[in-house]
């Protein structure tokens, strides 16, 4: 069963790296959102550094949502998803493997691109570190919610549009605590609490959503 799990994980990574492009495009998109903001609100360094946590998270939010559609669609359309249901690995396990692969392919490039944003949005080094930790802890939850959106819309022909709309409101807690884990003021420093809550929500999401997504996928065929 473990070999099936790793086989799916590795195959997804291999396919993404071989077809190239997509994950790089997402990282590029992430950076571009961050770069566009100063044009919208002006190059005031102080203002930018105050808004930076929010900007970083919104950019991450949008990039993850943008990549959602790839998660199950190809496997559904070429029949692979149906065959994976005939293997010994429970479908929730299949979803978890794909979730992890998707996180590695979308969130890791974002994390790698964060220093670039930090410099341009004039974040100080501690804030930058908090941003990396916050993204590291929060993005698994974001991707996990995304799997539900992708699973629910997998049989809809133009589901790519509707999945982000479904998932966005559900992901608001992640956004709140994700930004909260970076921001320290004004008022008492709540970033530690926020990080813990972020971790809790992220963990719950990763633990629960594979089952929900698996149920949605089996229902889609029936």
């Amino acid at each position: 069963m473990m070999s099936a799990f790793t086989a799916i994980l590795l195959r997804d990574l291999k396919l993404a790296l071989r077809t190239g492009g997509d994950w790089l495009t997402l990282a590029l998109f992430f950076v571009m959102v961050g770069i566009v903001v100063p044009f919208a609100i002006g190059p005031d360094r102080e203002l930018l550094s105050r808004l930076a946590p929010g900007i970083v998270w919104i950019a991450a939010f949008l990039s993850v949502l943008l990549g959602l559609d790839r998660l199950f669609r190809a496997d559904h359309e070429d029949g692979t998803l149906l065959l994976l249901r005939l293997s010994d690995l429970p479908l929730a396990g299949v979803v978890l493997a794909k979730l992890i692969a998707h996180w590695l392919l979308t969130a890791l490039p974002l994390l790698a691109a964060t220093p670039l944003l930090a410099v341009m949005l004039s974040m100080d080094p501690p804030a930058f570190l908090r941003a990396v930790v916050s993204l590291l802890v929060g993005t698994p939850g974001l991707v996990a919610l995304g799997t539900v959106g992708a699973a629910v819309t997998v049989t809809i022909r133009r589901g790519g549009l509707i999945a982000p709309v479904l998932i966005l409101p559900l992901a608001i807690p992640l956004l709140i605590f994700g930004v909260g884990a970076i921001t320290t003021g004004p008022g008492p420093d709540q970033s530690g609490t926020a990080l813990l809550l972020l971790a809790a929500i992220s963990l719950i999401a990763v633990a629960v959503t594979p089952f929900a997504a698996a149920l949605a996928i089996t229902s889609a065929e029936d």
């Binding site: 605590f177 909260g180 629960v208 229902s219 029936d222």
Partner: peptide, 28 residues
């Protein structure tokens, strides 16, 4: 008919999420 079960899954995911949203929004 096929939509019903899928929407049901999403509705329940939302139901689990609503208290979390409420809590996080209050905190915020």
């Amino acid at each position: 008919l096929r939509a019903a079960r899928i929407v049901a899954v999403f509705t329940l995911v939302g139901a689990v999420n609503i208290p979390i949203i409420k809590f996080s929004v209050d905190w915020w």
